[in-house]
Write a protein that binds this DNA or RNA. Structure first.
Lengths: 212, 212
DNA sequence: AAATTTTATAGAACTAATTCTACAAACAAA
DNA sequence: TTTGTTTGTAGAATTAGTTCTATAAAATTT
């Protein structure tokens, strides 16, 4: 047991973890840096090793980070979490913050922005892009619900994600270990909230708000 | 003008180009390696510099690579192109090949797979994952035409049109005065011919082939 | 602190959709 | 010109999906 700091990157794209590791080693030459490509590996490691910073993608083949954040925080309450995701920050950043992360960084960021975010978060601060800071201010001050997808709960969002990826109700039920009637209930609520009544329209709407 | 080889990576995610550059410099220490984050930069460079290998994403804010490949090939017919994309290879790989690229590599690939693909393509070969090779073999053996929508009969095309517009089976049945089992039969045949098994994938495929 | 709304979940009853099988007509191939 | 294949169509049996109702827990509002 040494007293080096420990940094972890996790993303299902190996090219991303490799690259983040490289950046981390540049910033903290003496740190222990690990990379993983699944959430389960991260959880396993948190059980055995004290970790200072976790850089995480949201989507993994073996689960969705949004639900896992509280689990991670339970295992190691002091761990700092920086989300590094390709998903639209307009949709996910605020949710992630509410779930307890310390920062949200877009995968489109430049190397300097990435370094900056890491440094901010390591200094026990929050990191958010200008864009998101403004959005939060707007929402706070003007209470405008900007985009219908914000009305979806995390669970609903997870399910809508599976739906637009092509999973059928039964498949979703078995993936999430729920009853098919539960999925139907979600589906109805989601359709209602987004004001559509069929899958193609949902996809259109979702894709629309996903990419801006 | 030196006689070094010239390699370009282009992706809207800077972390990806950075990482690919690193890999390329490892493989070809004497090469000129450039990275860009837009297609327009790539095109501009092809006009001034002779390029050996281009590693390209498909989606850019300023355009879709698929439509641009012929342009790139016109500027420099000998340039080798390796697509490195997060999009579903089942849907995009063959299309990219038809457009004239030399390889298709998934963003989920490990570093070794990436290196391997680069080496293969540089050796004037094609690179494709096992999965896609098998798919192409199947198509070749069973002589399926390259544009699957051509395989649809008029009636099937009519029904697929209604499907992507959001009509449900029962609605289509009543519009066309047919039994719902008939619509189901069509649906199965259409899915089969287009090689998909769910509506979102069908929509993707249909939109893709519709716009050319 | 109490009242209200939203969220996450399902059982039972019901409706919609698919599968499997089939068959005639049109078309293509040997 | 017979043989094989694709197309257009369904009935019966089966499976998938929805609706309606309900309830506990969480979040929000009053």
């Amino acid at each position: 047991m040494d007293n080096k700091i420990t940094l972890i990157t996790a993303d299902d794209h190996s090219i991303v973890t490799k690259s983040l590791c490289f950046i981390l080693k540049g910033l903290y030459p003496d740190a222990n840096v690990y990379e993983f490509n699944s959430i389960s590996d991260v959880i396993r490691t948190l059980h055995t090793t004290s970790v200072d910073l976790l850089i995480l993608d949201i989507t993994f083949p073996d689960g969705n980070t949004l639900n896992i954040i509280p689990v991670l925080k339970t295992i190691q309450p002091q761990v700092k979490i920086l989300i590094f995701s390709g998903l639209d920050e307009d949709i996910y950043a605020v949710r992630c913050l509410n779930a307890g992360v310390n920062g949200y960084l877009s995968k489109l960021s430049t190397e300097d922005e990435i370094k900056n975010a890491i440094i901010e978060v390591m200094a026990t601060k929050k990191y958010l892009s200008k864009n998101i800071q403004e959005k939060i201010m707007d929402n706070y001050i003007f209470k405008k619900p900007s985009n219908p997808i914000d009305q979806l709960s995390n669970r609903e969002l997870e399910i809508v994600g599976l739906m637009v990826e092509g999973y059928k109700s039964t498949e979703i039920a078995s993936i999430l270990n729920l009853q098919k009637s539960t999925i139907s209930t979600y589906k109805t609520r989601i359709f209602e909230k987004l004001g559509v009544d069929n899958l193609p329209d949902l996809i259109k709407k979702f894709n629309l708000y996903e990419k801006m």
